[in-house]
C-alpha cells in the first residue's frame, strides 16, 4: 500500500449559505499525480481552498499524511507541507521576484533552495530584481510554481497552471510538472486542459456540481468518451 499523502473525506463546503461541495472524497498517494477535473464552477478551486484552509469545511475531514488539518489556519497547513499554486497565480505584485521566493522558503529537510529554483526557471533568475507585477503571465505562472516549491511541499496543489497561457508556455509548464513528477513530488493538478492533465496524471477525479462524479486510474477515463462528454464537455 502506498502512503496516503492527501485525503478529502466527506467534505461539505459552503460559501455563506451556498452549498458548493457535497461530501467530496478522494485521496492522493505519495509520489503520484492526481488530476482534478470538471467544468467551470464544478468546485475544483473550492477543493483547493478547503485543503489550504481558506475555507473551513462544514463537515468532513482533510488529512495530510494522515493528520487532520481541517481546523487549522492556512499558514499552519502550509507548514504541514501543502504548497499551493493558486488559480490566477496571485504573485505578490509589489515584491521583487526574489522576494516572492524568499518569503515562501521553508526548509522542511527538502532540496528546494533559491539556487535550485533559479536553475529550474532561469528566466526568473534573470528577472529576480524586478517587481513580480511587471512579469508576463507565463513568467508569473512560473513564479507561482517556484514560490510553492520554495516551501518544499510534501503535496503540491496546482490550480489551472495552464490557464491563459500561450501554447508554447503551456508546453513548458507541462514539462516542468513532468519533471517534478519524476522527482517524486506528490501533486494535485486542477486543469481545464484535458490533454495536459491526461499526459501527467496517474489518477483522475471528476467533479460535477460539487460532487465526485468519477474517481479512478487514468486508463479508465482516457478511453471513456461518454464519461468525458458528460462531465467535461469536450471531444
Amino acid at each position: 500500500m502506498a502512503t496516503e499523502a492527501l485525503a478529502l473525506d466527506g467534505v461539505d463546503a459552503l460559501y455563506g449559505e451556498s452549498h458548493v461541495l457535497h461530501g467530496v472524497s478522494f485521496s492522493l498517494a505519495e509520489g503520484r499525480v492526481l488530476a482534478l477535473l470538471g467544468r467551470n464552477g464544478a468546485g475544483k478551486t473550492t477543493c483547493m481552498n478547503t485543503v489550504i484552509g481558506f475555507l473551513r469545511p462544514r463537515n468532513g475531514a482533510v488529512r495530510v499524511f494522515g493528520e487532520p488539518v481541517q481546523r487549522l489556519a492556512p499558514d499552519v497547513i502550509s507548514r504541514k507541507g501543502i504548497g499551493l499554486v493558486p488559480q490566477g497565480r496571485r504573485v505578490f505584485a509589489r515584491l521583487t521576484v526574489k522576494e516572492n521566493l524568499v518569503v515562501a522558503h521553508q526548509k522542511r529537510g527538502g532540496a528546494w533552495t533559491l539556487e535550485r529554483v533559479f536553475e529550474l526557471f532561469p528566466r526568473l533568475k534573470e528577472r529576480q530584481a524586478q517587481d513580480a507585477g511587471s512579469l508576463s503571465g507565463g513568467e508569473q505562472q512560473m513564479l507561482a510554481i517556484a514560490r510553492a516549491l520554495m516551501g518544499n511541499p510534501r503535496v503540491l496543489l496546482l490550480d489551472e497552471p495552464s490557464e491563459g497561457l500561450a501554447p508554447l508556455i503551456v508546453a513548458e509548464v507541462g514539462k516542468t510538472i513532468a519533471r517534478l513528477k519524476r522527482e517524486g513530488q506528490s501533486i494535485v493538478l486542477v486543469e481545464q486542459n484535458i490533454q495536459l492533465a491526461f499526459s501527467l496524471a496517474d489518477e483522475v477525479v471528476i467533479l460535477n456540481t460539487g460532487r465526485v462524479a468519477f474517481s479512478g486510474p487514468l486508463d479508465q477515463v482516457r478511453t471513456n468518451e461518454a464519461l468525458i462528454t458528460q462531465h467535461l464537455g469536450v471531444f
Binding site: 489550504i52 484552509g53 481558506f54 489556519a73 492556512p74 499558514d75 502550509s78 507548514r79 504548497g83 499551493l84 493558486p86 496571485r90 505578490f92 518569503v103 515562501a104 521553508q106 514560490r147 510553492a148 520554495m150 516551501g151
Partner: peptide
C-alpha cells in the same frame, strides 16, 4: 490570504 498560504504567520 496568499501570504498565509505560503506559511507566513
Amino acid at each position: 490570504q496568499m501570504a498565509s498560504a505560503v506559511g507566513i504567520p
